Simulated assay, not measured.
Amino acid sequence: MKSNEVEPDPSEGKIGMSSAKFIGLAGRYVYMGQPVIPVANLMLGDTLLVPSVDGKGEMQPNREITREELAVVMMRYAKSCGIAGADAEPSEEGITDWANVSSFAMSSIGWALANGVISGVDNLDGTRSLCPHDSASRAQMAKIILNVEAMRG
């Protein structure tokens, strides 16, 4: 194990976030006149939860997470814990901004909708919006995490 990795600590056979680790970081770097840009990825076991941003090696931990990014992280987390849920195609009926979902998040948003992890935001006209590029609020994040944990049964 490399010095920058965290030893997994499964609790009662469940995979917890305590076993998550950053990979791609060296224990130390030697300045050779050029910038060093490590590619740091957050892993949970063999599952990539959060890749570095735009392939630039930046994690940007203070940047707010978007709703579609949160769906991607939660689907990866659920599948790594064996709580994959249904892979059914969700109904796009009544969702006004389905076309705004980024291609990288399309399957995760679909999974989250099909499994009741997310439901979208109700509009006054009775339709729903996913608001995929909006920042996830603390309340939305808490509800999504609880919905995924409820899938454990």
Rank of each mutant, 00 (worst) to 15 (best):
V73E: 08
P61V: 04
K56C: 08
G94Y: 06
G94N: 07
S102C: 05
A88Y: 05
M106V: 12
V53H: 03
P90R: 06
Y77P: 00
L49G: 03
D125S: 03
E58I: 12
I109F: 05
N100R: 08
G116E: 10
R76F: 09
A88F: 10
A78E: 03
W111A: 04
D54R: 14
I95T: 10
E93I: 14
F104L: 03
L124Y: 00
A105P: 00
G94D: 07
L70G: 13
L49C: 09
D125F: 06
P51F: 00
P90E: 04
L113Y: 04
R76M: 09
S107P: 02
G94F: 06
C81W: 02
N115G: 11
D87M: 12
G110S: 06
E64V: 15
M75R: 12
G94C: 09
G116P: 14
D125H: 04
P61A: 02
R128Y: 03
G94W: 06
A112D: 15
M74K: 00
E92K: 13
T96R: 08
A114F: 10
M74I: 03
P90I: 14
P90A: 10
G120Y: 03
T127F: 06
G120W: 01
Y77H: 07
L130P: 11
I65M: 06
E69K: 04
K56V: 11
I109R: 05
S80W: 01
G94H: 05
N123M: 15
M59P: 00
N100T: 15
F104C: 03
N115E: 07
S103L: 09
E69G: 04
N115S: 05
M75K: 13
N115Q: 07
A99W: 04
K79W: 08
E58P: 06
A88K: 15
G82C: 12
W111N: 01
G82L: 11
N62H: 12
E68N: 05
E64L: 14
R128I: 00
G116F: 04
S119M: 10
G110C: 09
T66V: 08
V117L: 14
P51H: 01
R63A: 14
D125K: 11
N123V: 08
V121A: 01
K79P: 07
G110K: 10
K56H: 12
Y77I: 10
W98A: 04
A71I: 09
I83T: 09
C131N: 13
V72W: 06
A114T: 07
D54C: 07
I65W: 00
V53Y: 14
S80P: 01
A88N: 15
G55W: 08
R63V: 11
G57M: 07
T66F: 01
I95N: 03
V72R: 11
